[in-house]
Design a protein around this nucleic acid. Structure first.
Length: 270
DNA sequence: CGAGGGACCTGGTTGC
DNA sequence: TGCAACCAGGTCCCTC
């Protein structure tokens, strides 16, 4: 479900409710996520929330010592509620605050992650090998060009590889490649530096606009306030197979690349 | 090292 | 209406 804009939307939504509050309890109703939720998370109890951040699609809640890390996987979401509100189906974990409010983690498919980390967070095994953030310095056309030399695989897989750059998921990979006029199946190592410059600009542009719209709601994404994201209406190719390209009118195609559905215009994207 | 495929899950939609 | 098949916004891990 969530790509970087949806995680960023969630982060911004939950931050005011958590910041500078003390965690009174961590309630685990169902520990069987992708990795089992361990008792380590109980170290959060009694600690104050110093800050919340996002790294890639991971949410980091920094406490006085160590912190909690949450990943929403394909179907996860977070919302703020009262601690005694009746849990809904797939509400697996609660972070109960000292004011009776509660951060509730819901994840039907249970691909998500809820774990404890010890500082420094960036040395955590899941974070250590991640590439640069797409909206920060260090991510540039020159960087992508250099990293892609010798790569024979499709450029779409390349930009979705978290070791190369984080946060570009299936929707925004298709969108940014369309915006840059690059065919998603083209070998990453056979794309010029200039075209990578255009691709970086497109990735930044689409992610920033999606964040401004509160993310993309395809079927069930909602921010922490329960509201959907409105970027779906700005999608240029994703989910539009058979419909006319907005640039040239040719029917948008759908093709499986790297086991994921990809959408593109065969005429505009070379 | 890179590429490709399977794995982990539930639930909504599609097609017979 | 019933039921099976297929599909879904992620990413780790194993093999070649």
């Amino acid at each position: 479900m969530p790509e970087l804009p949806e995680v960023e939307t969630t982060l911004r939504g939950i931050t005011p409710a958590l910041l500078e509050r003390t965690i009174s309890e961590v309630r685990v109703r169902n520990a069987s996520l992708r990795w089992p939720v361990t008792d380590e998370v109980q170290q959060a109890c009694g600690q104050r929330v110093n800050s919340l951040q996002r790294r890639a699609k991971y949410l980091l809640i920094t406490l006085g010592s160590g912190g909690l890390m949450i990943h929403l996987g394909m179907s996860g979401s977070l919302r703020i509620c009262d601690e005694d509100d009746a849990p809904r189906k797939h509400d697996h974990v609660d972070i109960v605050l000292d004011n009776g409010r509660c951060l509730r983690f819901n994840d039907p498919r249970r691909f998500g992650l809820f774990c404890w980390w010890q500082a420094p967070a960036d040395q955590h095994p899941l974070l250590r090998h991640l590439g640069p953030e797409p909206l920060q310095d260090g991510f540039s056309g020159a960087y992508l060009y250099q990293k892609s030399r010798g790569r024979r695989g499709p450029v779409k897989n390349f930009i979705m590889d978290g070791k190369i750059v984080v946060g570009v998921g299936n929707i925004y990979a298709s969108e940014s490649l369309f915006m840059a006029g690059i065919n998603p199946a083209r070998a990453a190592g056979r794309i010029s530096a200039a075209r990578y410059g255009a691709l970086v600009a497109a990735i930044r542009d689409v992610l920033e606009r999606a964040i401004a719209q509160g993310g993309t709601t395809l079927r069930d994404f909602a921010g922490s306030d329960g509201k959907p994201g409105y970027f779906a209406q700005e999608l240029l190719v994703y989910g539009r197979d058979g419909a006319p390209c907005f640039q040239c009118g040719t029917a948008i195609r759908k093709k499986v690349i790297g086991q994921r559905s990809s959408f593109y215009c065969a005429r505009c994207q070379v």
